[in-house]
Write a protein that binds this DNA or RNA. Structure first.
Lengths: 208, 208
DNA sequence: GTTCAAGTGAACGGAGGCGTTCAGATTGTC
DNA sequence: GACAATCTGAACGCCTCCGTTCACTTGAAC
Protein backbone atom coordinates (compact mmCIF):
# COMPACT_ATOMS: atom_id res chain seq x y z
CA UNK A 1 0.00 0.00 0.00
CA UNK A 2 1.98 2.90 1.32
CA UNK A 3 5.20 1.09 0.55
CA UNK A 4 7.63 2.79 -1.77
CA UNK A 5 7.63 6.52 -2.25
CA UNK A 6 4.37 8.27 -1.76
CA UNK A 7 3.63 10.78 -4.51
CA UNK A 8 3.41 14.13 -2.85
CA UNK A 9 2.58 17.50 -4.21
CA UNK A 10 4.75 20.57 -3.68
CA UNK A 11 8.49 21.03 -3.68
CA UNK A 12 10.26 17.77 -2.87
CA UNK A 13 12.74 17.59 -0.01
CA UNK A 14 16.35 17.88 -1.02
CA UNK A 15 18.14 14.77 0.23
CA UNK A 16 21.51 16.26 -0.64
CA UNK A 17 20.81 18.91 1.97
CA UNK A 18 20.10 16.27 4.57
CA UNK A 19 23.46 14.68 3.87
CA UNK A 20 25.22 18.02 3.97
CA UNK A 21 23.61 18.84 7.31
CA UNK A 22 24.55 15.50 8.85
CA UNK A 23 28.09 15.75 7.58
CA UNK A 24 28.55 19.24 8.97
CA UNK A 25 26.88 18.20 12.21
CA UNK A 26 29.12 15.17 12.61
CA UNK A 27 32.22 17.22 11.89
CA UNK A 28 31.31 19.79 14.48
CA UNK A 29 29.90 17.50 17.17
CA UNK A 30 32.81 15.08 17.04
CA UNK A 31 35.40 17.82 16.90
CA UNK A 32 34.01 20.22 19.49
CA UNK A 33 31.49 18.23 21.45
CA UNK A 34 27.76 18.65 21.83
CA UNK A 35 27.69 21.69 24.07
CA UNK A 36 30.39 23.56 22.19
CA UNK A 37 28.78 23.08 18.78
CA UNK A 38 26.31 25.62 17.52
CA UNK A 39 23.43 24.96 15.18
CA UNK A 40 24.10 28.24 13.41
CA UNK A 41 27.67 27.22 12.62
CA UNK A 42 26.56 23.79 11.44
CA UNK A 43 23.96 25.39 9.19
CA UNK A 44 26.59 27.71 7.74
CA UNK A 45 29.02 24.84 7.15
CA UNK A 46 26.30 22.83 5.44
CA UNK A 47 25.29 25.78 3.27
CA UNK A 48 21.78 25.59 4.61
CA UNK A 49 19.40 27.77 6.55
CA UNK A 50 19.12 27.24 10.26
CA UNK A 51 15.37 26.91 9.90
CA UNK A 52 15.84 23.97 7.57
CA UNK A 53 17.70 22.12 10.27
CA UNK A 54 14.96 22.76 12.79
CA UNK A 55 12.29 21.73 10.32
CA UNK A 56 13.97 18.45 9.56
CA UNK A 57 15.50 17.40 12.85
CA UNK A 58 13.49 19.15 15.54
CA UNK A 59 16.20 20.22 17.92
CA UNK A 60 19.88 20.04 18.69
CA UNK A 61 19.76 16.75 20.56
CA UNK A 62 17.87 15.00 17.78
CA UNK A 63 20.39 16.29 15.28
CA UNK A 64 23.16 14.85 17.38
CA UNK A 65 21.49 11.46 17.57
CA UNK A 66 20.94 11.45 13.82
CA UNK A 67 24.60 12.28 13.23
CA UNK A 68 25.70 9.45 15.51
CA UNK A 69 23.42 6.95 13.80
CA UNK A 70 24.72 7.90 10.39
CA UNK A 71 28.30 7.58 11.59
CA UNK A 72 27.57 4.15 13.02
CA UNK A 73 26.15 3.06 9.67
CA UNK A 74 29.27 4.17 7.84
CA UNK A 75 31.31 2.40 10.49
CA UNK A 76 29.38 -0.77 9.86
CA UNK A 77 30.56 -0.80 6.25
CA UNK A 78 34.22 -0.42 7.13
CA UNK A 79 34.79 -3.20 9.60
CA UNK A 80 34.85 -6.13 7.26
CA UNK A 81 37.26 -8.76 8.46
CA UNK A 82 40.04 -9.48 6.00
CA UNK A 83 39.15 -12.65 4.17
CA UNK A 84 42.36 -14.48 4.88
CA UNK A 85 41.46 -18.11 4.71
CA UNK A 86 44.80 -18.81 3.12
CA UNK A 87 48.20 -19.03 4.73
CA UNK A 88 49.23 -20.59 7.98
CA UNK A 89 47.80 -19.75 11.38
CA UNK A 90 50.38 -17.17 12.34
CA UNK A 91 50.04 -15.30 9.06
CA UNK A 92 46.29 -15.22 9.31
CA UNK A 93 46.37 -13.93 12.88
CA UNK A 94 48.92 -11.30 11.94
CA UNK A 95 46.75 -10.10 9.08
CA UNK A 96 43.76 -9.83 11.38
CA UNK A 97 45.73 -7.94 14.00
CA UNK A 98 47.09 -5.52 11.47
CA UNK A 99 43.70 -4.87 9.92
CA UNK A 100 42.18 -4.22 13.31
CA UNK A 101 44.92 -1.89 14.44
CA UNK A 102 44.73 0.05 11.20
CA UNK A 103 40.99 0.32 11.55
CA UNK A 104 41.12 1.57 15.12
CA UNK A 105 44.03 3.95 14.54
CA UNK A 106 42.35 6.19 12.03
CA UNK A 107 42.12 9.67 13.56
CA UNK A 108 38.47 9.83 12.64
CA UNK A 109 37.81 6.67 14.61
CA UNK A 110 39.74 7.88 17.63
CA UNK A 111 37.86 11.14 17.59
CA UNK A 112 34.52 9.42 17.23
CA UNK A 113 35.16 7.09 20.15
CA UNK A 114 36.27 9.94 22.36
CA UNK A 115 33.14 11.86 21.68
CA UNK A 116 30.71 8.99 22.03
CA UNK A 117 32.29 8.06 25.35
CA UNK A 118 31.99 11.61 26.63
CA UNK A 119 28.40 11.93 25.52
CA UNK A 120 27.53 8.55 27.03
CA UNK A 121 27.78 10.30 30.38
CA UNK A 122 24.43 11.99 29.77
CA UNK A 123 22.84 9.89 27.07
CA UNK A 124 23.72 6.31 27.85
CA UNK A 125 21.69 5.10 24.87
CA UNK A 126 24.32 6.65 22.63
CA UNK A 127 27.03 4.48 24.12
CA UNK A 128 24.92 1.36 23.91
CA UNK A 129 24.05 2.03 20.28
CA UNK A 130 27.74 2.37 19.52
CA UNK A 131 28.62 -0.86 21.28
CA UNK A 132 26.02 -2.71 19.26
CA UNK A 133 27.02 -1.17 15.94
CA UNK A 134 30.76 -1.45 16.47
CA UNK A 135 32.71 -3.41 19.06
CA UNK A 136 30.17 -6.13 19.81
CA UNK A 137 29.57 -6.78 16.14
CA UNK A 138 33.30 -6.97 15.61
CA UNK A 139 33.75 -9.34 18.52
CA UNK A 140 31.11 -11.74 17.21
CA UNK A 141 32.68 -11.76 13.78
CA UNK A 142 36.10 -12.41 15.21
CA UNK A 143 34.83 -15.09 17.56
CA UNK A 144 33.33 -16.85 14.56
CA UNK A 145 36.74 -16.87 12.92
CA UNK A 146 38.29 -18.31 16.06
CA UNK A 147 35.59 -20.93 16.16
CA UNK A 148 36.27 -21.85 12.54
CA UNK A 149 39.95 -22.25 13.34
CA UNK A 150 38.96 -24.51 16.19
CA UNK A 151 36.72 -26.59 13.97
CA UNK A 152 39.49 -26.83 11.41
CA UNK A 153 41.77 -28.22 14.10
CA UNK A 154 44.30 -25.39 14.04
CA UNK A 155 43.66 -24.36 17.60
CA UNK A 156 42.05 -25.68 20.76
CA UNK A 157 39.74 -23.10 22.29
CA UNK A 158 36.96 -23.48 24.87
CA UNK A 159 35.53 -19.97 24.87
CA UNK A 160 35.87 -18.39 21.42
CA UNK A 161 34.56 -15.00 22.54
CA UNK A 162 37.04 -14.86 25.38
CA UNK A 163 39.87 -15.91 23.09
CA UNK A 164 38.81 -13.28 20.56
CA UNK A 165 38.89 -10.65 23.28
CA UNK A 166 42.28 -11.81 24.43
CA UNK A 167 43.86 -11.65 21.02
CA UNK A 168 42.31 -8.33 20.12
CA UNK A 169 43.22 -6.85 23.49
CA UNK A 170 46.82 -7.94 23.21
CA UNK A 171 47.08 -6.47 19.72
CA UNK A 172 45.79 -3.18 21.02
CA UNK A 173 47.87 -3.25 24.19
CA UNK A 174 48.23 0.26 25.42
CA UNK A 175 48.25 1.64 21.90
CA UNK A 176 44.54 2.17 22.05
CA UNK A 177 44.77 4.14 25.24
CA UNK A 178 47.74 6.14 24.04
CA UNK A 179 45.92 7.18 20.90
CA UNK A 180 42.93 8.22 22.94
CA UNK A 181 45.08 10.49 25.06
CA UNK A 182 46.96 11.99 22.18
CA UNK A 183 50.35 10.32 22.43
CA UNK A 184 52.43 10.22 19.27
CA UNK A 185 51.78 7.05 17.25
CA UNK A 186 54.47 4.38 17.34
CA UNK A 187 54.04 1.99 14.38
CA UNK A 188 57.09 -0.01 15.38
CA UNK A 189 55.66 -0.75 18.81
CA UNK A 190 52.32 -1.61 17.23
CA UNK A 191 54.01 -4.22 15.04
CA UNK A 192 55.72 -5.65 18.10
CA UNK A 193 52.40 -5.78 19.88
CA UNK A 194 50.80 -7.70 17.04
CA UNK A 195 53.74 -10.08 16.75
CA UNK A 196 53.69 -10.60 20.51
CA UNK A 197 49.96 -11.24 20.49
CA UNK A 198 50.31 -13.84 17.75
CA UNK A 199 53.12 -15.51 19.64
CA UNK A 200 51.32 -15.67 22.98
CA UNK A 201 48.05 -16.69 21.38
CA UNK A 202 49.70 -19.55 19.53
CA UNK A 203 51.62 -20.73 22.57
CA UNK A 204 48.38 -20.84 24.51
CA UNK A 205 46.00 -22.20 21.93
CA UNK A 206 47.75 -23.65 18.86
CA UNK A 207 47.48 -27.38 18.35
CA UNK A 208 50.72 -29.33 18.28
CA UNK B 1 66.24 32.54 52.04
CA UNK B 2 62.71 32.59 50.75
CA UNK B 3 62.24 28.95 51.52
CA UNK B 4 59.41 28.02 53.83
CA UNK B 5 56.42 30.26 54.24
CA UNK B 6 56.90 33.95 53.72
CA UNK B 7 55.33 36.03 56.48
CA UNK B 8 52.70 38.22 54.88
CA UNK B 9 50.55 40.89 56.32
CA UNK B 10 46.78 41.02 55.86
CA UNK B 11 44.20 38.27 55.82
CA UNK B 12 45.73 34.91 54.95
CA UNK B 13 44.33 32.88 52.07
CA UNK B 14 41.90 30.19 53.07
CA UNK B 15 43.27 26.90 51.74
CA UNK B 16 40.03 25.13 52.58
CA UNK B 17 38.35 27.34 50.02
CA UNK B 18 40.87 26.35 47.40
CA UNK B 19 40.09 22.70 48.06
CA UNK B 20 36.36 23.33 47.97
CA UNK B 21 36.67 25.14 44.65
CA UNK B 22 38.75 22.39 43.08
CA UNK B 23 36.39 19.72 44.33
CA UNK B 24 33.35 21.49 42.96
CA UNK B 25 35.17 22.21 39.71
CA UNK B 26 36.22 18.59 39.28
CA UNK B 27 32.71 17.37 40.00
CA UNK B 28 31.21 19.68 37.44
CA UNK B 29 33.86 19.44 34.75
CA UNK B 30 34.02 15.66 34.84
CA UNK B 31 30.27 15.27 34.99
CA UNK B 32 29.20 17.85 32.43
CA UNK B 33 32.33 18.64 30.47
CA UNK B 34 34.24 21.85 30.10
CA UNK B 35 31.87 23.77 27.88
CA UNK B 36 28.75 22.77 29.78
CA UNK B 37 30.13 23.73 33.19
CA UNK B 38 29.62 27.23 34.47
CA UNK B 39 31.89 29.08 36.83
CA UNK B 40 28.90 30.52 38.63
CA UNK B 41 27.56 27.07 39.41
CA UNK B 42 30.94 25.85 40.54
CA UNK B 43 31.25 28.86 42.84
CA UNK B 44 27.82 28.18 44.29
CA UNK B 45 28.62 24.49 44.84
CA UNK B 46 31.88 25.41 46.54
CA UNK B 47 30.16 27.97 48.75
CA UNK B 48 32.42 30.66 47.42
CA UNK B 49 32.13 33.91 45.54
CA UNK B 50 32.71 33.83 41.82
CA UNK B 51 35.24 36.61 42.20
CA UNK B 52 37.31 34.43 44.49
CA UNK B 53 37.64 31.85 41.75
CA UNK B 54 38.79 34.45 39.28
CA UNK B 55 41.23 35.92 41.77
CA UNK B 56 42.82 32.57 42.48
CA UNK B 57 42.71 30.77 39.17
CA UNK B 58 42.53 33.46 36.51
CA UNK B 59 40.03 31.96 34.10
CA UNK B 60 37.95 28.94 33.30
CA UNK B 61 40.64 27.05 31.41
CA UNK B 62 43.18 27.48 34.20
CA UNK B 63 40.63 26.22 36.69
CA UNK B 64 40.08 23.16 34.55
CA UNK B 65 43.80 22.44 34.34
CA UNK B 66 44.14 22.84 38.10
CA UNK B 67 41.25 20.42 38.67
CA UNK B 68 42.84 17.86 36.37
CA UNK B 69 46.21 18.15 38.06
CA UNK B 70 44.69 17.66 41.46
CA UNK B 71 42.78 14.63 40.26
CA UNK B 72 45.95 13.14 38.81
CA UNK B 73 47.68 13.60 42.16
CA UNK B 74 44.91 11.77 43.97
CA UNK B 75 45.09 9.08 41.32
CA UNK B 76 48.78 8.70 41.95
CA UNK B 77 48.08 7.75 45.56
CA UNK B 78 45.55 5.07 44.67
CA UNK B 79 47.40 2.95 42.19
CA UNK B 80 49.71 1.09 44.51
CA UNK B 81 50.26 -2.43 43.31
CA UNK B 82 49.14 -5.06 45.76
CA UNK B 83 52.20 -6.31 47.60
CA UNK B 84 51.67 -9.96 46.91
CA UNK B 85 55.09 -11.46 47.05
CA UNK B 86 53.61 -14.53 48.63
CA UNK B 87 51.68 -17.34 47.01
CA UNK B 88 52.33 -19.11 43.74
CA UNK B 89 52.53 -17.45 40.35
CA UNK B 90 48.90 -17.92 39.40
CA UNK B 91 47.63 -16.51 42.70
CA UNK B 92 49.86 -13.48 42.43
CA UNK B 93 48.80 -12.78 38.87
CA UNK B 94 45.15 -13.19 39.82
CA UNK B 95 45.52 -10.74 42.68
CA UNK B 96 47.14 -8.20 40.38
CA UNK B 97 44.45 -8.61 37.77
CA UNK B 98 41.69 -8.20 40.30
CA UNK B 99 43.26 -5.12 41.85
CA UNK B 100 43.67 -3.52 38.47
CA UNK B 101 40.14 -4.27 37.34
CA UNK B 102 38.72 -2.94 40.59
CA UNK B 103 40.78 0.20 40.26
CA UNK B 104 39.71 0.85 36.68
CA UNK B 105 36.07 -0.02 37.27
CA UNK B 106 35.31 2.69 39.79
CA UNK B 107 32.70 4.99 38.26
CA UNK B 108 34.78 8.00 39.19
CA UNK B 109 37.69 6.59 37.22
CA UNK B 110 35.56 5.80 34.19
CA UNK B 111 34.10 9.27 34.25
CA UNK B 112 37.52 10.87 34.61
CA UNK B 113 38.97 8.96 31.68
CA UNK B 114 36.04 9.82 29.47
CA UNK B 115 36.44 13.49 30.16
CA UNK B 116 40.19 13.64 29.82
CA UNK B 117 39.96 11.84 26.50
CA UNK B 118 37.33 14.25 25.22
CA UNK B 119 39.28 17.29 26.34
CA UNK B 120 42.47 15.91 24.80
CA UNK B 121 40.93 16.78 21.46
CA UNK B 122 41.63 20.45 22.08
CA UNK B 123 44.26 20.45 24.78
CA UNK B 124 46.57 17.58 24.00
CA UNK B 125 48.76 18.43 27.00
CA UNK B 126 45.92 17.28 29.24
CA UNK B 127 46.00 13.82 27.73
CA UNK B 128 49.76 13.59 27.93
CA UNK B 129 49.75 14.66 31.58
CA UNK B 130 47.24 11.95 32.33
CA UNK B 131 49.26 9.27 30.54
CA UNK B 132 52.32 10.21 32.57
CA UNK B 133 50.49 10.35 35.88
CA UNK B 134 48.43 7.21 35.34
CA UNK B 135 48.78 4.47 32.74
CA UNK B 136 52.48 4.83 31.98
CA UNK B 137 53.38 4.90 35.64
CA UNK B 138 51.24 1.83 36.17
CA UNK B 139 52.83 0.03 33.26
CA UNK B 140 56.36 0.65 34.54
CA UNK B 141 55.43 -0.61 38.00
CA UNK B 142 53.86 -3.71 36.54
CA UNK B 143 56.74 -4.33 34.18
CA UNK B 144 59.05 -4.22 37.19
CA UNK B 145 56.99 -6.94 38.82
CA UNK B 146 57.18 -9.03 35.68
CA UNK B 147 60.92 -8.50 35.58
CA UNK B 148 61.22 -9.60 39.19
CA UNK B 149 59.28 -12.77 38.39
CA UNK B 150 61.67 -13.36 35.54
CA UNK B 151 64.71 -12.85 37.75
CA UNK B 152 63.18 -15.20 40.31
CA UNK B 153 62.92 -17.85 37.63
CA UNK B 154 59.12 -18.12 37.68
CA UNK B 155 58.69 -16.98 34.10
CA UNK B 156 60.72 -16.52 30.95
CA UNK B 157 60.08 -13.11 29.43
CA UNK B 158 62.07 -11.13 26.87
CA UNK B 159 60.19 -7.86 26.87
CA UNK B 160 58.71 -7.16 30.32
CA UNK B 161 56.83 -4.05 29.21
CA UNK B 162 55.19 -5.94 26.37
CA UNK B 163 54.30 -8.81 28.65
CA UNK B 164 52.87 -6.37 31.18
CA UNK B 165 50.73 -4.82 28.48
CA UNK B 166 49.59 -8.23 27.32
CA UNK B 167 48.51 -9.39 30.73
CA UNK B 168 46.81 -6.12 31.64
CA UNK B 169 45.09 -5.93 28.28
CA UNK B 170 43.76 -9.46 28.54
CA UNK B 171 42.43 -8.76 32.04
CA UNK B 172 40.60 -5.74 30.75
CA UNK B 173 39.41 -7.44 27.59
CA UNK B 174 36.40 -5.57 26.36
CA UNK B 175 35.30 -4.75 29.90
CA UNK B 176 37.15 -1.48 29.74
CA UNK B 177 35.44 -0.46 26.57
CA UNK B 178 32.05 -1.58 27.77
CA UNK B 179 32.36 0.47 30.91
CA UNK B 180 33.34 3.48 28.89
CA UNK B 181 30.24 3.17 26.76
CA UNK B 182 27.89 2.60 29.64
CA UNK B 183 27.14 -1.11 29.39
CA UNK B 184 25.95 -2.82 32.56
CA UNK B 185 28.88 -4.25 34.54
CA UNK B 186 29.35 -8.01 34.44
CA UNK B 187 31.49 -9.15 37.41
CA UNK B 188 31.22 -12.77 36.39
CA UNK B 189 32.67 -12.07 32.97
CA UNK B 190 35.39 -9.96 34.55
CA UNK B 191 36.44 -12.89 36.71
CA UNK B 192 36.52 -15.12 33.66
CA UNK B 193 38.64 -12.56 31.88
CA UNK B 194 41.14 -12.47 34.72
CA UNK B 195 41.24 -16.26 35.00
CA UNK B 196 41.66 -16.52 31.24
CA UNK B 197 44.44 -13.96 31.26
CA UNK B 198 46.29 -15.82 33.99
CA UNK B 199 45.90 -19.07 32.08
CA UNK B 200 47.13 -17.74 28.75
CA UNK B 201 49.94 -15.77 30.35
CA UNK B 202 51.17 -18.84 32.20
CA UNK B 203 50.95 -21.07 29.15
CA UNK B 204 53.01 -18.56 27.20
CA UNK B 205 55.56 -17.52 29.79
CA UNK B 206 55.64 -19.77 32.85
CA UNK B 207 58.72 -21.87 33.36
CA UNK B 208 58.00 -25.61 33.33
C1' DG C 1 42.78 49.20 67.29
C1' DT C 2 45.10 49.74 63.13
C1' DT C 3 46.59 47.75 58.86
C1' DC C 4 45.99 45.16 54.82
C1' DA C 5 44.97 41.38 51.94
C1' DA C 6 41.27 37.93 51.19
C1' DG C 7 36.75 37.38 50.34
C1' DT C 8 31.68 38.88 49.21
C1' DG C 9 27.52 40.49 46.70
C1' DA C 10 25.56 42.81 43.19
C1' DA C 11 25.54 44.67 39.07
C1' DC C 12 27.20 45.32 34.28
C1' DG C 13 28.79 44.83 29.33
C1' DG C 14 29.36 41.90 25.85
C1' DA C 15 28.85 37.81 23.57
C1' DG C 16 26.73 33.77 21.86
C1' DG C 17 23.27 30.34 21.42
C1' DC C 18 18.51 28.07 21.14
C1' DG C 19 14.38 27.91 19.13
C1' DT C 20 10.60 30.71 16.84
C1' DT C 21 8.24 33.66 13.60
C1' DC C 22 7.18 35.43 9.13
C1' DA C 23 7.24 37.13 4.62
C1' DG C 24 8.95 35.82 0.51
C1' DA C 25 11.73 32.98 -2.88
C1' DT C 26 12.28 28.47 -4.97
C1' DT C 27 10.97 24.21 -7.19
C1' DG C 28 8.53 20.65 -8.14
C1' DT C 29 3.54 18.47 -9.80
C1' DC C 30 -1.19 18.91 -11.90
C1' DG D 1 -0.44 29.10 -14.64
C1' DA D 2 -2.21 27.41 -10.08
C1' DC D 3 -0.95 24.88 -6.24
C1' DA D 4 1.71 23.06 -2.49
C1' DA D 5 5.41 22.14 -0.29
C1' DT D 6 10.45 23.21 0.91
C1' DC D 7 13.81 26.50 1.79
C1' DT D 8 15.76 31.10 2.99
C1' DG D 9 17.14 35.43 5.41
C1' DA D 10 16.51 38.30 8.89
C1' DA D 11 14.91 39.49 12.93
C1' DC D 12 13.26 38.59 17.72
C1' DG D 13 12.80 37.07 22.73
C1' DC D 14 14.90 34.85 26.02
C1' DC D 15 18.37 32.90 28.35
C1' DT D 16 23.07 31.65 30.03
C1' DC D 17 27.61 32.57 30.62
C1' DC D 18 32.33 34.84 30.94
C1' DG D 19 35.00 38.05 33.00
C1' DT D 20 35.19 42.72 35.27
C1' DT D 21 34.30 46.46 38.44
C1' DC D 22 33.39 48.36 42.92
C1' DA D 23 32.04 49.26 47.41
C1' DC D 24 31.98 46.61 51.34
C1' DT D 25 33.01 43.02 54.99
C1' DT D 26 36.00 39.66 57.32
C1' DG D 27 39.90 38.14 59.78
C1' DA D 28 44.66 37.51 60.99
C1' DA D 29 49.03 39.87 62.41
C1' DC D 30 51.30 43.66 64.56
Amino acid sequence: MSSGEVKRTGRPTDEAKREAILTAAADSFFAHGFAASSIEQIAADAGVSKVTIYNRFGDKRALFIAAVERECEQLRGNLEMPQVASGNLRDRLTAIGEAMTAFLSRPKMVQFERRIAAETEHESSVGEAFLVAGPWRMKRAFAALIDAMHEAGDIEVDDPELAAEQFASMCKGMGDLERRFGAAPDPQRNRERIAGAVEVFCRAYARD
